[in-house]
Amino acid sequence: MTTSPTSATNLVRAQEIYARRLVHQLDQSADQLPHAVLERLRAARVRAVASRKSYAQQTAQSFQQMGSTLAMSPNEGSSTWSKLISFLPLLALVLGLIGVHELQNDRNAHELASIDQALLLDELPPDAYTDPGFLKFLSLPSPQNTDNR
């Protein structure tokens, strides 16, 4: 039998109808599976659902661990040692700042002392006697000069 172009749609429809009737038969076949097979399928299903549950739990645990690591939550180390260890970085930071502050103070004091020492120990340069202002200063009567006389 040859199909004309006008009956092409009907042909496809007929194929569909035949296929639907066939799979209806197959549905009956699927409903008549042996008990052993049904049990195996049920066990497989239960196992798959359980694996999904364990996957969800693992995911939740990993998120929780990540969170407690970031937040340094008390769960991570409930013992005194763990708490002390968690404060070590902060303690080191404070000690470091104190050390830097002390060092800076020492350096400033040393610089000031050096300047004072230089001023006190430095001799009068010879050029100073050519300076008229300095000569005038020398000629002025000072309390020390008066006392000496």
């Binding site: 599976l33 299903r45 659902v49």
Partner: peptide
């Protein structure tokens, strides 16, 4: 959800086996 997954698998397991 876990229930949705279980229901889905229960609905398709026979045909999947036959297929």
């Amino acid at each position: 959800s876990e229930l949705e997954l279980a229901d889905f698998l229960k609905g398709v397991e026979k045909r999947a086996f036959k297929r």
